[in-house]
Design a protein around this nucleic acid. Structure first.
Lengths: 162, 162
DNA sequence: ATGGGTGCAAAGGATTTGCAACATT
DNA sequence: AATGTTGCAAATCCTTTGCACCCAT
């Protein structure tokens, strides 16, 4: 197979990629699309389990063998800055990201550290920045903390055993 | 000056300390009071600028020369666990504490990292745990992010200069 | 004498930085 | 050519851990 065939194939893939939803989303938010950025946002938009930087890295490094953690850090921060993703820091030692930028409540379990979306709860929404006491508010986030369903039932079982 | 005098003096100080508000507060929340714990909570209750672990350490290590960071970490975590203080992790690299456990909204400036209380905003309150979708919710926290008054006016000045 | 509290030093982890190579325009 | 992007390696910073000492009951 010659170089010309490879080039044609690459051009075809490139063209296909530009048709994707993720590509468009990046462009719309002013982020230059690159292979890595597309892959990372793609991952965020298909995994709603609030992945950490390392989760994203480990999931993608097999598909993009040259991927580095630095790039994942940079890209996720970039996406958050451009409001394509949300950065969640509910707990120390639990920095994670969420591709869903629609307002919704996050719940973190003190026991297992899991982050859960609570769509049933009323979340503060903010379409455009507002000013409060002179401060420009761009984002609102509501967090709940407690014990999740699974951990609560586990604790109950343990109580009975004791 | 003999040992008996020193002992009497120590006993007097001890007695005085037990009369303090901070001492009572610790007892009420099931935390055994120690010199370090009293000092740390005292600091939290008189400094409303959302100090980090290091802020607390640096402020107190001159007064208690033997104080270690480990103790400050342990104590602040202990206070948060016993709901004598709030642990705030609004941003990665910005873990701080708040001695005010009454519900109020926190605002963090993306520019300078400062944390400000917004008492004018309606904050979610939670007197006792509630159950949502099987999860036990013990705390609710509402965070805002954006640009603070000072940074916003600085940015405006720079715009004019350019 | 037993358990809890403290503090040092070391280990551990997560994130950032500097820099060189690379891709894209 | 110029600018932006990537990725390695090293550095940095924050936090935890292990252990020994100390105090109080």
């Amino acid at each position: 197979m010659g170089w010309d065939i490879l080039l044609t194939f690459a051009a075809y893939l490139n063209h296909k990629m530009m048709e994707t939803e993720v590509y468009t989303k990046l462009i719309e938010h002013g982020v230059r699309p690159s292979l890595q950025r597309i892959a990372i946002l793609q991952y965020l938009l298909t995994h709603f389990n609030h992945p950490t930087v390392d989760d994203v890295y480990r999931a993608l490094c097999t598909k993009i063998p040259t991927l580095s953690r630095t790039t994942v850090y940079n890209t996720l921060r970039l996406l958050a800055d451009h409001h394509v993703a949300q950065m969640l820091t509910i707990d120390d030692h639990h920095l994670c990201y969420d591709g869903n930028v629609e307002p919704h409540v996050h719940f973190i379990c003190k026991e297992c550290g899991k982050v859960v979306d609570l769509f049933s709860e009323k979340a503060p929404s903010l379409r455009k920045p507002v000013v409060v006491d002179g401060n420009i508010i761009e984002e609102k986030q509501l967090f709940y903390r407690g014990i999740c369903k699974e951990c609560a039932s586990k604790a109950k079982v343990n109580d009975n055993v004791q």
